[in-house]
Design a protein around this nucleic acid. Structure first.
Lengths: 336, 336
DNA sequence: TTGTACGCGTTATCAT
DNA sequence: ATGATAACGCGTACAA
């Protein structure tokens, strides 16, 4: 069934069928009904490829993320897909892994599929050097690039993120005000967001003139899903480095690892060790006591991101950068 | 840049350019090089829509799942996307939710985008009645339908799954052999897989002639991510119904809820209460003690599913049903 | 080995 | 309001 077949059976031209299909108001109700009847009778659906060719678009957005099974990224992808779906767009998902070169090549690939826009999910797509981000500049001329949880200032690149710096500054300060000044900062990513969090922690420490706080900054280089490895890593650190009575982690998974460490040492949480995670994932309610964590308003972010994208595609001028503040969700691993 | 521009600049016809592009061997090396140089010089990429029209395919597979942020489904989607990507296919992701009518409409939608095949991720796409599954029959004539973690016998429908019935039968039997006969079975889904698990449990119970075991079968109707609600639900059950010293859950999340229940009651796990989960998700290592669970070999399943799909698309005859046995991963919540 | 010409199914631009 | 027709860019018989 093609538009020609329909037009013939309905006794009109293909132009009229096309008008009916695309809801043009310049068609007589009687004609519309006649055409619609035939369309429904033969269960006709326009050919997507031909349609894409005419419209230069298949109403598709490319979603790139390093690992869609990651707790945080999976939720982001889910929200994004829902929002896009609700607005008539399909989602082309592409999991790139964390290697930069592979990311680049996938970006080219997805671009060749003629997507209307590209969403880069997670701050690991943005590096610190101009050089690392060149690949984004290269493609931004072709389609709008949306960044979730990262920021990069460049034409046709739009950023939506949570103010991780301030969140981290505030929770660090809160913990110090509760009396715990020797805080271990545990992180595992030097992504855009990862570095923002780290500087938030540092700023809070310096504000309170905590000496040698850098010695309590610990980078974990393994798989964060291996909680036991995280725990063992902290344990090794604890054996020779300065003591600590609080842990702030850049991710809930790492915080869970810290709780495992505490349990292994016979330390009570939160009495002997306070712990704060980040992302407010479902893990926070899986452990005992439940984990205090930072909610980075992912759903708000994804909603705003898609709204911005739709605006851009409609030719409107949209904000280049949308920042939301995070929110501390207090549970059982902290005293305050 | 179109194929015409390239052909003109290279001094050949578009047919030759097309041949070079598609790796035909019927083109002289010198000509190939000449064309390739121009292509690279102008960074030419064929228009995907026009290409799709000619080939009647855009090398795209539709992946449908109820909720891509679900721990299990997210991992499945991730593995699938990786496998497809590695074989030159893109993934069109579509999250449908659990409502049947919505699933149907999304299926039509994704079909209209001319995907080469459709993967239904998760057993919730298959109902018990013929009527519920009619929508699958309707579309199976158009593209191959791949089922992950479910089975349905129909032309052009291929199933890949784990033998949940046997897994559940075996772990139930194991727990009984360890001395625990009063086992609470906790589940939250009547999907294909959910019912298989349930009958595995029942069969094991009947085999050992356990009286009144049905009274210890508990259906939880809420959000499984709310561990506290699960715990409270079990607690209410425990107050008036027969006692139990073991819990087998159809999902890790429910098992975590059971552990929360135990902690609330002051019961020791596993001394006072044994617990087994299902899916072997990352949650198993987040709790204390770590959760014994069933690994349903998701990666093996996804690998096989994609292999089967590729075979079908290549016109080969492939197995209609691939079943893998599960594997019990013993951790700290069981005595055996 | 290479080129010509047509088909693919739409949308868009003109006339009418 | 409706129709005829020209793009759109590529793949591919078929011809050379």
């Amino acid at each position: 069934m093609t538009i020609y077949d329909i037009s013939k059976k309905a006794g009109v031209s293909i132009a009229t069928v096309s008008r009916v299909l695309n809801g043009s108001d310049k068609v007589r109700p009687a004609t519309r009904k006649k055409v619609m009847d035939i369309i429904e009778k033969y269960d006709y659906t326009p050919n997507a490829f031909a349609r894409g060719m005419g419209l230069r678009s298949l109403q598709t957005i490319g979603i790139l993320c390093a690992d869609s099974s990651d707790l945080f990224l999976a939720k982001a992808v889910f929200y994004l897909e829902q929002e896009l779906q609700a607005n008539g767009y399909e989602s082309l998902l592409c999991c790139t892994g964390y290697n930069l070169d592979i990311k680049k090549s996938y970006l080219d690939l997805i671009l060749s599929k003629k997507v209307d826009g590209i969403i880069l999910v997670g701050s690991n797509f943005i590096g610190t050097s101009e050089d690392e981000n060149q690949y984004i500049k290269d493609i931004s001329s072709q389609v709008p690039i949306m960044l979730l949880n990262a920021a990069f200032d460049y034409p046709n690149v739009y950023s939506t993120l949570c103010d991780d710096y301030t969140s981290m500054y505030e929770i660090t300060t809160s913990m110090m005000e509760s009396g715990i000044k020797d805080i271990l900062y545990l992180y595992n990513s030097n992504s855009y967001s990862g570095l923002k969090k780290l500087s938030g922690f540092k700023a809070a420490m310096e504000k309170q003139n905590i000496p040698d706080y850098e010695k309590r900054i610990l980078f974990y280089d393994g798989d964060p899903q291996q909680m036991d490895d995280v725990a063992a890593y902290i344990d090794r650190f604890a054996k020779k480095k300065p003591s600590f009575h609080g842990v702030i982690a850049s991710e809930d998974q790492l915080a869970i690892g810290a709780m495992k460490y505490a349990r292994g040492r016979g330390l009570r949480v939160p009495e002997d060790l306070s712990v704060i995670g980040y992302n407010n994932s479902m893990l926070t309610t899986c452990c005992t006591p439940e984990l205090t964590s930072v909610d980075n308003r992912l759903e708000t972010q994804t909603h705003q991101l898609v709204a911005t994208l739709l605006g851009v595609l409609a030719g409107e001028e949209m904000p280049k950068k949308s920042i939301f503040s995070g929110k501390l969700v207090k549970r059982g691993t902290t005293l305050f």
